[in-house]
Design a binder for these strands. Structure first.
Lengths: 198, 198, 198, 198
DNA sequence: CATGAATGAGCCTTCATTCAT
DNA sequence: TATGAATGAAGGCTCATTCAT
C-alpha cells in the first residue's frame, strides 16, 4: 500500500477545497462566502486553507481555472467530432441543461464576474478567462452554423455575446427551485431562431 | 422663504438615502454595501438611516418599490400612445440604452435577485416585484407584436422571460466601462429577429 | 369646561412618565430601559420626555422621590394609629405582600441601588433616599416591639438592616411568576422569631 | 522550558477571561458589561473572546458554572468533616465574610439572576444552577442543626430560602465601600436566632 | 502539511440626547 | 409644551488572515 506523494496529497486537498469553494461562492457570493465554511465542508481546518492558498481570491482564481479548463476541454472534444446538426443541437441542449441544472457552476461564474466588477486587480486576471470562454462559445456557434449549412451572419461576433448573456440571465432566474424551468428549451429556441433567420 | 415641513423633509431625506443606496447596492451588492457609506454619500449620519428605515433590507425593498414604480409608470405611459412600430422600437432602444447605460438600476436589480436567492423571507417580498415586472415586459412585447401587425407566437410567454434574461445578462457584461458596448443594438437585433421569425 | 393650567398639565404628563419609567426600570434596569419605550408606553413622544426631564437619571430620581414619599406617608399614617400587635403584624404582612406582589416598586428600588453602585454622582443623591427609608423601617420595627410589649434588643439597629436585606433578597427571588411564593409568610416568620427571641 | 500545549493555553485563556468577566458583570451588570472591556482587562483582543465563547451569555454561563462548582466543592469538603458546632459556625462566618467581602461573586450572582428574569432562554439554564445552590444551602443548614443537636423545624425548607435571600440582600447593601460593614455578624445573628428559636 | 488560537478591522444596530419646527 | 428628525458614541459579533505548535 503506497502512501501518497506530497504532491498528490496536496492536489487532493486542493480539489476538495475547490469543490467546497465552488459551492460556497455560488451560494453566498465572494464576499459572503466564509473560508471557515469552505474548509469545514471540505473536511479541513482553517490552517489547511492557508497552507494551500494565499487568500480567498486565490482560490477563486484556482476554481475558475480548473473548472473552466474542464468545461472547455469537453466542448473541444465534442466539437472535434463531425456530427450532424441534430446531434450538435442535442448535445448543446444537454450541455445547457447540465449547466443550468446544477446551477453551482453558473452561479459561481456570475459571482466571479461580480467580483471582477468590484476589484480592478482581479478583473485583470479574470479577463483571461473571459477571452477563453468567448472564444469557445464562438467556436461552438461557428460549428453550429457550418453544420447547419448556413453562412455566418455579419453580426456573428455579437451573437456569441448574446448567447452568453442569455445563459447568464437564465442562470440567475433559475434556481427558485420550485419549478424545473424550461430554460434549456428557451435557449434552443433562441439558437434555432437565429439559425433560421440567417 | 418657507422652511420644509416635517413630512417633506422626511421624504427628501429618504429620496437621498434611496439614491445613495441604489448606487451602493449596485456597486457592492447587498452584503457588501455598508450603511455608513450609504448615509455618508447621502450626506447624513448613521442614525438618520435608522430613523427612516428599520434595517438594510428595509431600504432594499423601498428602493425596489420606488424605482420599479417609476419604471413601470414610464412604460405604461408610453404604451398608452398609439405609435407606429418604428417609434416603438426606437423608444425601446432608448429605454434599453438608458437602463444599461446608467447600469446602476440594472445591477441593483441583479443584486436584489441574488439577495432573494439567499434569503427566504426577502424572496417572498421580492416575488411581488417580479410579477409586476414580468407583466410589464409581457405588455410591452405584446404591444410590439400588435403594432408590427404580427401574430403572437405560441411561445409568447417565454419570449418575455428570454428578453428579461437577455437584459440581465447584458447588464452583467456591460460596465467594464472601457468600451461603450453596443448592448442596446444587440437587444434590438434580438427583437427584430423574433418579430420576423414569427 | 376649564382647561388645565400649564402646571397641572405638566404634572399629569410627569405622572404618566413616572409610572411608565417605574415599570421600565423595574423590568429592564436603568441601563436597559429605553427612553423611547417609556415615552411610548406613557403615550408621548421622545420630545415630551426631554421637555420634562433633563436626562434618564433625572426621571430615575423623580420616580424614587415621588414613590418613596407615598410609601413613607402610608407607613407614617398607619404607625400613628395605636393599634394592637396583631393588627400591626397583619398590616405589615399585607404591606410586604403588596410590595413583593407587584414587584415593580421592589425591583425599581433594587435597580436604583445598582445604579448608585455604578455612579458616584447618583450615589450621593441616592443616599438621602436611603436614610429616609432606613429611618422608616426603624420606626416600624420600633412600633412593633413596643406594641408587642418587648424591649428592643441591643442590636436593634442591625435588625432593620437585616429586614431590609431580606425584603430585597426576596424581591429578587420572587417574580419567577410561576408559583405565588410565600415570601410574605417568610418575612412574618422572621419578624415573629426575632420578637420571641428577645 | 516546555511551551504550553494547545489545550492548556486555551484553558488558561478562558480562566483569564472568566476572571475578567466575573468582575465586569459584577460591576456593570450583564447588559452594561462590554466584551471589549472584558478582553482588554484579560489581556486579549476582541477576537480571542469569540474564539472561546459563542456569545456574551455563553461566558456568563461558563463563569456561573465554574465558580459555582468551586464554591460547592468547598462547602462539601468542609461538611464532610465532623466538626463541632462552634467550628461550623466559625467556618460559615468566614465563608460569608469572604463571599460578601470580595463582593464580586455575590454581585455577579445577582446580575445573573437579573438576566434570568429578563431572558426566558437563559432562565431555563439558570434554573439548574439555582437548584444546586439551594440544595447546598439546605445541606449546610441541615449540618448546622444536626451538629447543634437541634431538630429541624417544620419550615426548614423555607429557612434556606430566607438565608439565601439575606445573603443576596446584604450583598446589595454592602459595597458602598465606605464602611467595613458587619454583614457577616448579622448573618451569624440570624443563624443563631433560628437555632435557638427551634 | 495541518491545526487552531489570536488578531483587529469592519459592520449592523441601538439609543441618549439635541434641536428646528 | 410637544413633536420627531438627526446625531454620533458605543457595543455585539463576523471573518480574513497570521503564526506558534
Amino acid at each position: 500500500m503506497t502512501r501518497l506523494s506530497r504532491e498528490d496529497s496536496r492536489s487532493i486537498t486542493q480539489e476538495k477545497l475547490r469543490t467546497a469553494a465552488l459551492q460556497e461562492f455560488a451560494r453566498w457570493g465572494f464576499g459572503g462566502a466564509a473560508i471557515d465554511k469552505i474548509t469545514e465542508s471540505a473536511g479541513f481546518s482553517r490552517g489547511a486553507f492557508y497552507a494551500n492558498y494565499k487568500s480567498k481570491e486565490d482560490i477563486l482564481i484556482d476554481v475558475l481555472k480548473a473548472y473552466n479548463n474542464r468545461e472547455i476541454q469537453e466542448w473541444r472534444q465534442f466539437l472535434a467530432m463531425p456530427e450532424d446538426i441534430e446531434t450538435v443541437l442535442n448535445y448543446m441542449r444537454e450541455s445547457f441543461a447540465r449547466y443550468l441544472g446544477q446551477a453551482d457552476w453558473g452561479m459561481f461564474v456570475i459571482e466571479a464576474q461580480l467580483h471582477a466588477k468590484r476589484n480592478k486587480d482581479f478583473a485583470a486576471k479574470y479577463r483571461g478567462y473571459l477571452n477563453e470562454v468567448n472564444e469557445s462559445v464562438r467556436l461552438m456557434l461557428s460549428a453550429l452554423y457550418s453544420r447547419a449549412g448556413v453562412a455566418e451572419p455579419p453580426n456573428f461576433g455579437e451573437l456569441a455575446v448574446l448567447l452568453r448573456a442569455l445563459v447568464v440571465g437564465l442562470s440567475l432566474d433559475v434556481g427558485d427551485d420550485s419549478d424545473p424551468s424550461n430554460a434549456p428549451d428557451q435557449l434552443m429556441y433562441f439558437l434555432k431562431t437565429i439559425l433560421h433567420h440567417a
